[in-house]
Amino acid sequence: MRYGFVGTGEITAAIVAGLSTAADPPEVFLSPRGRAVSARLAERFPNVRVCADNQDVLDHAPAIVLAVPAPVARDVLAELSFRPEHVLISATAGVPPERLRAWSAPAGAVVRSIPLPQATRRRSLTVMYPDNAVARELFTRVGGVLVPGDEAALDTFHGATAAFSAHLDYLGTIVDWMAARGVDPGAASAFVTHVFGELGSSLLERPDSLTVMSTRHTTPGGLNEQFRDDLRRDGVPDAVRRALDRDPGPGAGMTRQAGVFRRAR
């Protein structure tokens, strides 16, 4: 299989690194968008080539990953000539499937996906819809695949990814609190990163639900229970739900419908 990437940001770099560090790496063709990233990937991996333009990518690969910002997706695709053997795998959030199909006709298939930065270590659990053998092969090479029941469920997964930055900000708040109490900032950061990094690893190793895991880390009357209950009294869980439900606004390419994120039409 040969894979082409139109758009070379962080997600493309992660997928390409994951593909290229595995045994028997596939041929990878990159667009010149994001020239610095493309050049670094081509210098690092012998299976990666930077093409002259985006059409050159399509001319060399049947599986095309679209990874450009939503506002420019139409203009980028309008310049390209797809063939029926092409599979367009969109990693661009905020563009409805019917538009992707219209803009990439006569491509044989269009798949929406949510690849994660962990692809660089081949540990991305990539959500995609609909199921497609070509897309499944690609994302299996860089981790696992999860196919939800319908398009609306995929939108909900997209909404959940909005919590990434807030989670990191939460950890940063703990580090800042420790530093304000006299702990060396570097030591505080190393400790918090280790504790929550290892906690994340334990989540992957245990088949239990998050509720069960939370109970195991909660001693009745202990510090964990007190801290959790303080946050619940302050309405933190409800604030999280409100933030996930909130309409991100027209610039984000999504609207809220019945409490679930859906792509703007």
Rank of each mutant, 00 (worst) to 15 (best):
F5V: 01
G9L: 14
G9D: 14
T12A: 15
I15Q: 11
V16I: 04
V16P: 02
A17D: 10
S20R: 05
T21K: 01
T21M: 02
T21D: 02
V28C: 03
P32M: 06
A36M: 06
A36V: 10
R40P: 12
L41P: 06
L41G: 02
A42H: 06
E43G: 13
R49P: 10
A52N: 09
D53L: 02
N54R: 11
Q55W: 06
H60E: 07
H60C: 13
H60Q: 14
P62S: 05
A63G: 09
L66G: 12
A67R: 06
P71Y: 05
V72W: 09
A73H: 11
A78I: 14
S81E: 11
H86S: 12
H86A: 12
A91V: 10
A91R: 08
P96A: 13
E98A: 15
E98N: 14
R99G: 15
W103G: 15
G108D: 04
A109K: 04
V110Q: 05
V110L: 07
V111W: 03
R112W: 07
Q118P: 05
A119C: 03
R121F: 03
R121E: 05
R122W: 00
R123W: 00
V127T: 09
M128R: 06
Y129N: 03
P130L: 03
D131L: 08
N132M: 08
N132A: 13
N132Y: 07
A133G: 10
V134R: 12
E137K: 07
L138S: 10
F139R: 07
V145A: 15
E151C: 14
L154P: 15
F157W: 15
H158T: 15
L168S: 03
T173I: 02
D176G: 03
M178H: 05
G182I: 05
D184Y: 00
D184P: 06
A190I: 00
V195T: 04
L199N: 00
S202I: 01
E205T: 00
E205Y: 01
S214G: 12
G221C: 04
G221K: 05
Q226A: 14
F227I: 13
R228I: 12
D229I: 07
D230Y: 03
D230I: 07
D230L: 10
L231P: 10
R233W: 04
G235W: 07
G235I: 10
V236M: 12
V236Q: 07
P237D: 11
L244N: 10
L244E: 09
D245H: 13
R246Y: 05
D247M: 09
G249F: 04
P250I: 06
G251E: 13
A252W: 02
T255D: 12
A258I: 08
A258C: 12
F261E: 13
A264G: 14
R265N: 11
